[in-house]
Amino acid sequence: MKVLVADDDAGSLLVARAAVERSGHDCLTAADGDEAWAMYLEHQPDVVVTDWMMPGMDGMALCRAIRAREADLYTYVVLLTSQGSRDDVLAGLEAGADDYVTKPLDPFVLHARLLVALRVTTLHADLAHYRRVLSRQARTDPLTGLHNRLKLSEDLEQLHVRSLRYGEDYSLAMCDVDNFKTYNDLYGHQAGDLALRAVAAALLSTARESDGVYRFGGEEFLLVLPKQSLGGAKALVERALDAVREAAIAHAGDPSGQLRLSAGISAFAAGNHVDAETLLGKADGALYAAKARGRNRVELAR
């Protein structure tokens, strides 16, 4: 673990450092509360062992600041104090400390506290990891591995706000696999799943690093194209349709004999006060126009 010890008493600081290093942990030291806070922000230690009374930020204030800042990672805080009354102990715990040790510091007692700290911080690190995994899973389509509707709503809101603020264009492209119900009827749902994965791969292969590719639902996909005008978006989406054609997925139920894609595109431009939901509707309307005009094509929303 990385352990930060803060104490304005040089002798106590040396004892604490020796105990921490003898326990096999990396040790950082600070001579006052302000220095401790700066080192905490820079190094993000797993454990903070802090004196109660120090110049600048005292131990109680340091505890509160650490707890106010923490997100996924948990810092185990031990208060060093010569004040052993019950009220003082409760005040320290309420401020965010996990444990306390009275002075003069006993290296054995600190070693024991660090064993507990290791268990607690490891548990918190595991929980943070599982939270991140669950968060990714909740925002990922399990079939294609693309982002899903939940992630789309978050990303599109952020993009729209940013584009409004900075006067930037962006485009949305709604894509739909042509005659997909017939494909499933002819080849079965397992083949349909494989086809959707192939379409997802084709879309990813043509998207820029800054673009977002989402499974919108069923056989529908959405491309979110930041800083992309209507004309630029059309060129990119036509390349995506070419990539699907090049995949050469046989489809006896399509006039072309192969799986094809249709798309509709809408665009946000600076000075255009339309909201993101309206743009989605316009892209969907353009997609229906592409279907009505023979499929296997791109149409632009007007």
Rank of each mutant, 00 (worst) to 15 (best):
Y74I: 08
Y74P: 02
V78G: 06
L79W: 01
L80K: 06
S82E: 06
G84I: 01
S85P: 00
S85K: 01
R86M: 09
D87H: 12
L90I: 15
G92E: 05
L93G: 04
E94S: 12
E94F: 01
A95G: 11
G96D: 00
A97P: 05
D98G: 11
D99W: 08
T102G: 15
K103N: 06
L105R: 10
L105I: 14
F108C: 05
F108A: 10
V109D: 03
V109W: 03
L110P: 10
H111D: 14
R113V: 02
L114Q: 02
A117G: 06
A117K: 03
L118C: 02
V120G: 05
V120P: 06
T121S: 06
T121Q: 06
T122P: 08
L123A: 05
H124Q: 10
A125R: 15
D126H: 15
A128W: 01
H129R: 15
V133C: 08
S135R: 13
S135K: 13
Q137M: 09
A138R: 07
R139W: 03
T144V: 06
G145I: 12
L146S: 14
N148C: 11
R149D: 05
R149T: 07
R149S: 07
L150F: 03
L152Y: 09
L152E: 06
D155L: 11
E157I: 01
L159H: 07
E168Q: 13
E168M: 12
Y170G: 00
L172G: 08
A173V: 02
A173N: 05
M174R: 03
C175N: 02
D176Y: 10
D176E: 12
V177P: 00
D178K: 04
N179E: 11
K181W: 01
Y183I: 02
Y183C: 04
L186N: 12
Y187G: 05
G188K: 00
H189Y: 08
Q190L: 14
R197E: 12
A200M: 01
A202M: 09
A202S: 15
L203D: 08
T206V: 09
E209A: 15
E209L: 13
D211A: 08
D211L: 07
G212W: 11
G212E: 11
V213L: 09
F216M: 12
F216C: 02
F216T: 01
